[in-house]
């Protein structure tokens, strides 16, 4: 946003074909560069962020430290904008949780990404630091089954308590019912298939 280049970041391998190949990636925005210097285990993911918000992938073990550092160091990122999950079934760690922070002093934004996977995917909870993280984390738990260690009240939030499964996982069916039209000469149409008709260009 404010502190970074608009449009796409030129990450090798993800450069749009229409543009000539750009050799060096642009220098990181200030906030991101400081974060990368302070926490060497964080890195910029190889992925297109079309909104230009600077992004760092954070190892889950360091997440709480990174967020506390972001809160306390100038410019203080003092607004938790959103926490959201995504499911990429083909990946080794299929659950990606994205954190978005905002600094009211400079109006910079920074995005953190954490990956979870395995039998019982889990990430550290941010609720002790940010009360605002309470409901979003519950929603991710509800929708993806990613647990948050240290969350004071981790239970379903949108679905009924006795619901089975996690709806936003890709292996959860959309649950469409075929529509039967009155006196239809043709059998009911098949429901919309989930996922793209076109093969995804990434694995």
């Amino acid at each position: 946003m404010a502190e970074s280049t608009p449009g796409t970041q030129s990450v090798p391998g993800q450069t749009p074909q229409s543009e000539p190949a750009v050799a060096p990636p642009p220098e990181h925005p200030e906030a991101l560069q400081r974060l990368l210097d302070r926490f060497p285990d964080c890195f910029v993911p190889d992925w297109r962020f079309a909104d230009g918000i600077s992004t760092a992938a954070v190892p889950p073990a360091q997440l709480v430290d990174v967020v506390r550092w972001l809160m306390e160091t100038e410019p203080r990122f003092d607004l938790l904008v959103d926490i959201l999950g995504a499911h990429w079934p083909q990946r080794e760690l299929p659950f990606e949780v994205t954190y978005l922070f905002h600094s009211l002093a400079t109006h910079w934004r920074i995005r953190l990404k954490c990956l979870a996977g395995g039998e019982a995917p889990a990430l550290p909870s941010l609720v002790p630091l940010w009360p605002a993280a309470n409901w979003p984390e519950r929603e991710i738990y509800d929708m993806y089954g990613v647990a948050f260690d240290g969350h004071p009240d981790l239970r379903r939030i949108l679905m009924p308590n006795d619901w089975e499964g996690h709806p936003l996982r890709k292996d959860f069916p959309l649950g469409e019912e075929p529509v039967e039209f009155y006196r239809s000469p043709t059998p009911p149409a098949a429901p919309f298939p989930a996922g793209g008709d076109i093969e995804p260009s990434i694995a």
Binding site: M159, P167, F172, P173, L174, G175, E176, E177, V179
Partner: peptide
């Protein structure tokens, strides 16, 4: 009447 445009898991159809 029929769950409208949301023919999915969450709604009573």
């Amino acid at each position: 009447s029929c769950s409208g445009v949301y023919n999915n898991y969450a709604l009573v159809q």
